[in-house]
Amino acid sequence: MKTRREPLTDTQLLMTITICIFIAMYALAMIFLGGGFLRAQQIFDLLNDNAPLIIVACGLTVVMIGGGIDISVGGVTSLVVMSCVLYLNADGNLFVSMLLALGIGLAFGAVHGLLVSYLEIQPFIVTLAGMFFARGMTTILSVNPQKLTHEGLNAIRSIKLEIPWLGYVAKNGNLIPGRIELGVLIALLCVIVIFLVLKYLRLGRNFYALGGNQQSALMLGINVKKTRFMTYLISGLLSGIAGFVFMMHTGAGNATNAAGAEMNAIASSIIGGTLLSGGVGNVIGTFFGTLTLTTIKKIVVTSGLKDPWWQSITTGAMLLFFIVLQSIVLSRRGKSRAKG
């Protein structure tokens, strides 16, 4: 029997839309703005600057697929940055600092998961409290910005992956190779790992079942509480990793680190085709969602609209565009199904 091509699932459809729009947008930028957009380094810069955002957005996507929400991701990231910087500056061990980052992330994830899943408290409130706690702890650790002085890590920070054939020739005739930071590789690794977890692991499919219909998931024999707990744990873990990557990128701890990251991450997930109602979404989509979100800001700046308020206005407009588009696409789909 020949396997017939099935129509795209909701997840695939929304993801495809995002990827197409991103490519179209980037192509338009290359044609009309040229300059930096013609260089591969433009994308590398986007990735270098936003690797932590990609990582937290992946975590948030997992939680949203499971039908929850985690708005603590920015706070946890910032707490991890501050804790690691202070620890390393006090002659800490590099390896231990990594464990510290993961530990803080996991601890937050575990507490959130416990409260949401086993005590059945509304996730918004739990993770809001988590965000308050993380932000508060950050300022308790230090109100003043802390510069990273640990030599080992600073040495690692300066390592950059150089790709000559993706470089460009500067005005003075020198070839400047494409430069990618280590953090980007970590981010890409996170995307791939989470993608594989969601697609090929029982646990990952259980996330979708949970978000699709919680009651059904229970009746189908899924341990709903444990599954939901795991979504928050993963999100916490990724926030911890994001914190470490953030530190590697900026080399400083600051109370306002990753400010607003939670909302940017939510926006990235949504643009990438994740539904807050759960059960639909994919980290590849989220990855492109993050790129779309950050590219539009870059485009606004490059077009000469330097005033910062232009960025947020365009971001808002783009969110509006994507949200309405998705709503229309899904409701048309529902209608055609009801008829068929």
Binding site: L201, N206, A209
Partner: peptide
């Protein structure tokens, strides 16, 4: 009591067995 967002096959096999992979 099935999940509308999953495929038919997934609905038939999810939550069963103890294998780690799908």
């Amino acid at each position: 009591t099935l999940c509308p967002n999953l495929t038919v096959a997934e609905n038939m096999y999810i939550g069963r067995g103890a294998s780690f992979l799908v």
